[in-house]
C-alpha cells in the first residue's frame, strides 16, 4: 500500500478563451495509512480534485501518483486497484436494481488476489467490517436506510483493496446520529485495513475528528495545510480563521 502524491495539479473547465481554472497548481501528499482532510466551501475546487484523481476529469497539468505510478496514464482497471471513491449521496451511488451482494461483488471483480469461490466470504467479511448483518446481501438498496446505504458504499470502496480511498462529502446527506455511525464505521475500517484516505468535507468538526492532516482550499488553491490539530488550533491564513469562526458551536460542555 502506498500514499497519494498530487503535484501541481491544474484543472480547467471549458476551452480556449472561456476556460476557467477551477484547480490551480494544487500539491499535497496523503501519507501512507493516514487521512488527509480537504476542506473548503462550494466552488473551492475540492470535488474537482477528487474527480481528477479518479480519472473522471482530465487535468491540464500536474501529476497524480500512487506508489510511483502516474494515475492519468493508467488504464481504468489498473487505476481501480490504486484508488476508489465513496460518493456523497448514498441514494444515487448504489444501482437500485442490484442487491447489496451484487454491488460488492462487482467491486471484487477488480481483484486478482482472491478466487471466485472466496468472493462470497469476502463480501460477508466486508459487510461485517461496516457493521452490517450478513442477511442484507439479498436486499435492494431501497430497503436500506441512508446510513446503511452509505456503509454499503464504504464496503464497496474497500472491496477493491485500493491504496487510496477518496471520500467526497460522505456524511453531508445524512442525519447527525447516522453521521456518527458512519464516521465510527469508517474509523474502524481505516484502523484495520491500513488504507490512505482523502476525506473531502465542508464540515470542519467532522474533518477534525477523522483526519490526521488537513488542507484548506479556497478558489482552487490550497491556502493552508498541516497537522489537523495544529492548523485548527492556531490557523494562520485568514480564510481558515473565517471558516473556523463560522462553525456553529454547541454551548460549552460541562
Amino acid at each position: 500500500m502506498s500514499g497519494l502524491v498530487v503535484d501541481g495539479l491544474t484543472v480547467q473547465y471549458g476551452k480556449g478563451s472561456q476556460a476557467r481554472t477551477v484547480v490551480d497548481d494544487v500539491s499535497f501528499t496523503v501519507p501512507q495509512g493516514k487521512v488527509l482532510g480537504l476542506v473548503g466551501e462550494s466552488g473551492s475546487g475540492k470535488s474537482t480534485v477528487a474527480r481528477a484523481i479518479l480519472g473522471l476529469v482530465k487535468p491540464v497539468a500536474g501529476e497524480i501518483s500512487i506508489g510511483g505510478e502516474n494515475l492519468p496514464t493508467l488504464s481504468a482497471a489498473r487505476r481501480a486497484r490504486r484508488v476508489q471513491m465513496i460518493f456523497q449521496d448514498p441514494f444515487g451511488s448504489l444501482n437500485p436494481r442490484m442487491t447489496v451482494g451484487q454491488i460488492i461483488l462487482e467491486a471484487l471483480e477488480a481483484r486478482r488476489d482472491i478466487s471466485r469461490s472466496e468472493r462470497r466470504s469476502e463480501v460477508l467479511r466486508l459487510l461485517d467490517l461496516v457493521a452490517m448483518p450478513p442477511d442484507v446481501v439479498e436486499r435492494l438498496p431501497r430497503r436500506l436506510s441512508g446510513g446503511q446505504r452509505q456503509r454499503v458504499a464504504i464496503a464497496r470502496a474497500f472491496a477493491a483493496q485500493p491504496d487510496v480511498i477518496v471520500a467526497d462529502e460522505i456524511t453531508s446527506a445524512l442525519d447527525v446520529s447516522v453521521q456518527a455511525q458512519v464516521l465510527n464505521v469508517l474509523r474502524g475500517v481505516l484502523a484495520t485495513e491500513q488504507h490512505s484516505m482523502l476525506f473531502i468535507s465542508h464540515n470542519l468538526a467532522v474533518v477534525r475528528y477523522i483526519s490526521d492532516v488537513v488542507a484548506v482550499m479556497q478558489n482552487g488553491v490550497i491556502v493552508e495545510s498541516g497537522d489537523v490539530e495544529e492548523v485548527l488550533a492556531s490557523p494562520r491564513h485568514p480564510y481558515t480563521r473565517a471558516l473556523l469562526a463560522s462553525v456553529p458551536q454547541l454551548p460549552q460542555r460541562v
Partner: peptide, 21 residues
C-alpha cells in the same frame, strides 16, 4: 448518476456498465 461513476472508477468495461447499470 453516481453509481455509474462508481462502476467506472472500479474499472468496469463500458459494455458491462451498459448491461448491468
Amino acid at each position: 448518476l453516481d453509481y455509474v461513476a462508481a462502476a467506472r472508477t472500479m474499472g468496469i468495461g463500458r459494455l458491462k456498465i451498459l448491461g448491468r447499470h
